[in-house]
Each structure stands twice: as structure tokens, then as C-alpha cells.
Design a protein around this nucleic acid. Structure first.
Length: 170
DNA sequence: TCCGTATTGAACT
DNA sequence: AGTTCAATACGGA
């Protein structure tokens, strides 16, 4: 049997004041989080057939997401099933250490993971972050406090930072 | 192997 | 203060 096949994640919606986020779970944990899309998302309409453990993870993820969207500390997260290279996971791990209301530059993240010159690669890893908001890639600004970029749209990044009391330049 | 990237800092208008 | 540019690490095609 091919366990790598992984036909599909279990997708469950998280209702927030900003719309319906979609969380994707594997058997190992939370694998993806997507911003609300205008079209109705392809989520499991009910919890029928969803393992109890995943439902538990989903409750944790939903609470953490709502806290973060409100500008509060993210709090406990379910286990994360991060697919990515070593480098990317190092970056994402470093991002998780940025507390609410704090920011880092791409260069600082690069230093933190022991590759001070890999600043652009850090940017690339941020863009590949499968779990935005909960892995706070929005707290990474450019060296001169410029906004930088955001895969979910700069409007999101700006809004998230503002809620945390941060006013980026630009 | 080549190309793009959510960078950076220095040099130069 | 704005613009240009080379250096640099990584990932995808």
C-alpha cells in the first residue's frame, strides 16, 4: 500500500470575523491553513467520518486562530504536519518563536537559523509557509521596517500587524 | 542548470 | 530620499 498517496486532507472550516478559514489535517496533525476564499470552500460539511482526534485538533486550531486574529497570543497549537525541506522547517520553527506584538527582519531570521546570508531564501520559505497566521509569517518585516510581502495579500499582513499594535512603514 | 524570490546594504544620483 | 545593482541561498522546472 502506498501511504504516500494521501488522497486528500480532512478539510474543516473555521468561522471567524474575517471569514471562513479552511484547515487541512493529515493523520499526523494540522497540515495547511488557507485564508477565506470567496467561493465556497471544499470542506467537510459535517463532522461525520472525521476522527475524534482531528476534531480535537480542529478545536485547538480554531481557538488559536481566533486569538491571533484578535491580536492576542496564539496559545497552544495542535501538532503540525509540516511538509517541507529542512531549511524551510527551520525557518518556520524560528517564526513560531516571535511573540505577539513583536517583529523580526528576514535577516534576523536568517541569523537565527545559522545562515545569516540566506536572507532571500528565508523570504522564500516564508512564502511557502503552509500555515499562515498560526505560524506568524506576518511578523517578519524587511530590514528597514518596510512591509515586505505576504502570500495571502499585503492587506492581510497589514491588518494582522495593526491588530497587534504594530504600524509598519510604507 | 537556470530562473525567480515576501532581501539587503552600498553606491550613486 | 529615491534608485540601481550586485551578492546570496534555496527551491522548482
Amino acid at each position: 500500500m502506498q501511504q504516500s498517496k494521501r488522497t486528500s486532507f480532512t478539510k474543516l472550516a473555521i468561522p471567524t470575523q474575517d471569514g471562513w478559514f479552511v484547515a487541512s489535517y493529515s493523520e499526523k496533525g494540522l497540515a495547511e491553513l488557507n485564508f477565506p476564499s470567496k467561493q465556497g470552500a471544499n470542506t467537510n460539511a459535517s463532522s461525520n467520518g472525521v476522527p475524534a482526534q482531528i476534531r480535537r485538533w480542529h478545536r485547538m486550531a480554531a481557538a488559536a486562530l481566533k486569538h491571533t486574529l484578535a491580536g492576542r497570543a496564539t496559545g497552544a497549537l495542535p501538532p503540525l504536519d509540516l511538509s517541507g525541506t529542512d531549511f524551510q522547517r527551520r525557518v518556520w520553527n524560528a517564526l513560531r518563536r516571535i511573540n505577539c506584538g513583536q517583529t523580526r527582519s528576514y535577516g534576523e531570521i536568517a541569523k537565527q537559523i545559522g545562515k545569516p546570508k540566506a536572507v532571500r531564501a528565508v523570504g522564500g520559505a516564508c512564502g511557502a509557509n503552509p500555515i499562515p497566521v498560526l505560524i506568524p509569517c506576518h511578523r517578519v518585516l524587511a530590514a528597514n521596517k518596510k512591509l515586505g510581502g505576504f502570500s495571502g495579500g499585503l492587506n492581510w499582513k497589514r491588518a494582522l500587524l495593526t491588530r497587534e499594535g504594530i504600524t509598519p512603514r510604507g
